[in-house]
Design a protein around this nucleic acid. Structure first.
Lengths: 236, 236
DNA sequence: TTCTCGAAAATGATATCACATAATGCAGAA
DNA sequence: TTCTGCATTATGTGATATCATTTTCGAGAA
């Protein structure tokens, strides 16, 4: 019924935090699809917990706009439409460029090196085709840059946007070779080394566009064509 | 102990929603100060409810970064520091300019008229010195513009930023005459009438800077001076 | 007076229960 | 076959109870 990738549970974690982290991770990597019917009690049973912490975790995820609590006892992953995708992509570009620009003064050579290490690791994971890990690493690459700014407040917002793009992650990484993504990371690193804010913003926008924009649109188009075909068959 | 302005409760609302809305409103207008010690049970008793819906409301507010659940049984309003204020202000400008730019194609004359009506209403409330209502109206003015875009996804993020600036609202509105704010609204309306994206962004940035940026910094400086004085007295 | 320690109280987290309501499925009618 | 009602089941919500842990506060020591 569910297939939520397991995550480590630190002993200090509360149950509610664990559920939240596990669901969040599942949504982030695209393991929860919009079709799946979620219920508080169903999840609680699956996780062998009481409904209380599950309900709290779901409410938090709803506040992060990862899921929607419909109120008529239905919980859903928001359906992606073409205009919504455009809005989210453009918001993501605005936010990440903002974060990058404000992080730039705090970027050090060791930070760039650590980012490069993540990027190298990603090259390995592309080889071994570990797609979920690749998504996590890609986020980690970006997060490391934006968190360089010690006073940043934008990171949770960016994570929320990543969550909303989660349902596309698997399709995206499956659909394409990673060459685009990787190349753009190299461009980001080059811009960082030159402390070139304009080039950095451009590289980030390109990374987002190549990474998820292009594929997202293709997925939606394919879906629309499919629906059209079904509709046509209906009329016959 | 608490002084949470009452809000209407629609019959369809769940208890948890009501608590969330009431706390959110209180924080938004600055009725909850960072010093106030919040507890789940204390709030539940004050509102004559069980702890369950209160805790859920608090968790949601925590996800919206209106409050912090410290984990050691302390709930706090995040303390504002100078660098944090700069981050939030700059994020708010980025977000609202983004939202305005994407709303502009959907702006109609009737929308501009309705925004002008809100602005006129604000002039009245300035006279009668109803500061909390003024804050609500100011947010409504901005929200009306950004929501013109039917596919927007940025509004919840902006509301979260407003929440984080909430503790400043009362101080800000008390500290200054509203002339700056009102004037900037007139500039925003003028830019909208001309469909001038650049002027619109500039007016919004100025509105934020004059409305809360300048005052926020003054409040922090005054607070720092006070702390310094206390520290000096300590040494004597 | 100030600090330390420990008992008492308060608090958050979770499970469980009761209740109202929405979803589901089946029987009978059209 | 398809639609309509109704009984059954499932589900979300909120209150309560319990437990572990933290905070509080006062008594005694320094």
């Amino acid at each position: 019924m569910f297939d939520l990738p397991e995550i480590p549970r630190h002993p200090t974690m509360t149950t509610q935090e664990y559920v939240h982290a596990r669901l969040r991770n599942a949504i982030m990597v695209g393991a929860v699809q919009p079709e799946s019917t979620l219920t508080i009690r169903g999840l609680a049973e699956y996780l062998e917990l009481s409904p209380t912490p599950v309900r709290e975790a779901l409410r938090r995820l709803s506040s992060e706009r990862a899921i929607e609590l419909l109120g008529n006892r239905r919980i859903s992953i928001p359906v992606m439409t073409a205009p919504r995708l455009e809005e989210i992509l453009s918001l993501r570009m605005t936010l990440e460029c903002h974060a990058a620009r404000r992080a730039l003064p705090f970027v050090s050579e060791v930070l760039i090196d650590r980012m490069r290490e993540i990027d190298d690791q990603m090259d390995d994971y592309v080889q071994s085709r570990e797609f979920d890990a690749l998504t996590i690493l890609n986020h980690g690459f970006h997060r490391m840059l934006y968190m360089a700014n010690p006073h940043q407040t934008v990171m949770p917002v960016i994570e929320s946007v990543w969550l909303q793009l989660g349902p596309f992650q698997r399709q995206m990484i499956h659909a394409f070779d990673q060459f685009y993504l990787i190349d753009r990371h190299k461009e980001i690193l080059a811009a960082l080394r030159r402390r070139d804010a304009a080039a950095l913003a451009q590289a980030i926008e390109a990374d987002i566009e190549d990474g998820i924009g292009r594929v997202g649109r293709e997925v939606l188009q394919a879906r629309a064509a499919e629906a059209e075909a079904a509709h046509a068959a209906d009329r016959i």
